[in-house]
Design a protein around this nucleic acid. Structure first.
Lengths: 186, 186
DNA sequence: TTTTTGATACCGAACGATCGGTAAAGTTAC
DNA sequence: GTAACTTTACCGATCGTTCGGTATCAAAAA
């Protein structure tokens, strides 16, 4: 392997930040080039499919990140409430304490390929499933657990939007504070 | 090519649909031209400030629509629960039963002018205020009413995002169903 | 009533800039 | 040398925007 200026992980995480900040249509190869330090043509060497492939990789990378830092830890043996508290801190980081939009949101606006749409849907469904499982583990019946899981994610996404418009991450922080009550038996 | 004319209201509502569907960056003058029936140059006659001015007009138009169909009716004398039910049906229409993104969401992504950002913030604050007042009217203390108002809007925005990703408006419909319980004393 | 006129609204064509994308040459590591 | 990788240079298309000119219509002038 010869001379790779920037690692795959860095390349992907920096691209993700650009996409999440400017949206799919607002993300230009020039911006990606600036953010990653790679020339446009170099991006095409890494991602022959161009912008669409980068967006898809960002979506899959987001899924992988969630799997590693949220889904899997929630599955490990241990106190559900304790695991949930750890997962919440991971989410706080992921969204930069409510200041960075969600990839699911910005990449799901019209303009993306069907592949991208599917990747986002898969990842979000996996998220719902992970939250459903932890809610069941803490004693809630299946149907109710599922309802609460969706409710939790709805509230995360919504508070990110509201917080962005109001220029105040208070709503997001409150949502994170309420997550344990939503996902475990109150 | 024959002359084409369109009323200010139509012009604005069609532009709003384009912006809400494709986002600020994804909305091109070509798309606006196609959606409104006016040539690009004609759009500049109506909006000398170009795309930014159209987006600002869409934001202010959204605020005006909400004021007329939601905020003001909620202020009129009458049973709070009844007024709320009517407002909910207006919101269902506004979001095309959960299939059309929210203008606050798509216009608040990076790229808009400070003026636009302010207009969105003002409109959302007015929405929160209107929901707070109706919650107070139905017997909730001020602080709790405000909390519930924000919660209601967070849930609307979040369910729109989740529904868009999952390709299923179920979450949005459920949110509307839950709104009375959120905004009035359960 | 008919004609003239001026303001308003609209359009076709073009601007420079930037878009996503490509080909080929140059550089680095093995 | 060769393969992996990056870069310079470039492409056609589209971006937001501008401008000269045309259509429309109401009011004034005939």
């Amino acid at each position: 392997m010869a001379h790779s200026t920037v690692s795959d992980e860095d390349l992907l995480s920096r691209s993700a930040e650009v996409f999440r900040t400017y949206g799919f249509e607002g993300t230009s190869l020039a911006r990606l080039s600036e953010a990653t330090g790679l020339e446009k043509a170099s991006l095409y060497h890494r991602f022959p499919g161009g912008k669409e492939q980068i967006a898809l990789a960002v979506a899959e990378g987001t899924h992988a990140w969630l799997r590693l830092h949220v889904f899997e830890p929630l599955k490990e043996p241990g106190d559900p409430r304790k695991k949930l508290r750890a997962a919440i801190e991971q989410l706080r980081d992921c969204y930069a304490d409510g200041t960075l939009p969600c990839a699911f949101e910005v990449l799901s606006l019209a303009g993306g390929s069907p592949e991208l749409t599917n990747a986002l849907k898969d990842a979000l469904q996996a998220w719902i499933k992970a939250f459903t499982e932890i809610a069941k583990e803490s004693g809630l019946p299946t149907a109710e657990a599922r309802r609460r899981a969706e409710q939790a994610i709805v509230q995360i996404e919504g508070s990110l939007v509201v917080g962005r418009v109001l220029g105040d991450a208070k709503a997001f922080r409150r949502t994170l504070d309420e997550l344990p009550a939503i996902l475990t038996n109150e």
